[in-house]
Amino acid sequence: MRSILECQGLTKKYGDFFALSNLTLTLERGQIIGLLGPNGSGKTTLIKLANGLLIPTDGHIMINGLAPCPDTKKIVSYLPDRSFLNERMRISEILTFYSDFYDNFSMERAEKMLDALEIDRCARLRTLSKGNKEKTHLALVMSRDADLYILDEPIGGVDPAARDYILQTILTNYNENATVLISTHLIADIESILDRVIFLQNGQLALNALVDEIRTQYGKSVDALFREVFKC
């Protein structure tokens, strides 16, 4: 089986600015991976390239051996870092939309999660509270049986209870052969659910290691190491 995500010499320029430069990286299946780095280090650029929202300036990015295309989009479930749904739609319409377009969308799972949140199916998305909106987005993304989940800042700016809910949702719903890529700058909060972390700095790979390797080798948490490496 091909690795789920491969980058070779991946480069993305915005004007004269290198958002990613010559990144070579392979993600294996069955891992939860943290994508870490300060703002502007290229995390979101990498994620958008993987989803085909950006075209590489140079190099390749492959999902399951294919450049981003409809076939890769079938197996990638993506949570953008912003609201991405038409907010005038009702929850029930959004559910129908997802099951219309994604063969691997499990209506049952989505219903279960929304029931737990007590979200009214007739409500329009824009009427939900900010927290419930974010949880609904995550529930939709995690209701797909994908091979690769890409979550861009899922815990940015939520309270600790919401954070626990989000982590539980991720752990409960991903299947063991799938890979979950989570970008964040709040490492301490999610360190215990990660297999591996990838540090990006200035669009380049600074570190790619297992969490327990880092703890064994440096005798400190990934969070502490991160603060040391990227201290301003």
Partner: peptide, 14 residues
Amino acid sequence: LALEAAVNPNTMQK
């Protein structure tokens, strides 16, 4: 167990 502990299943497995 992994869910209870809120840790990665692979780590629990290990």
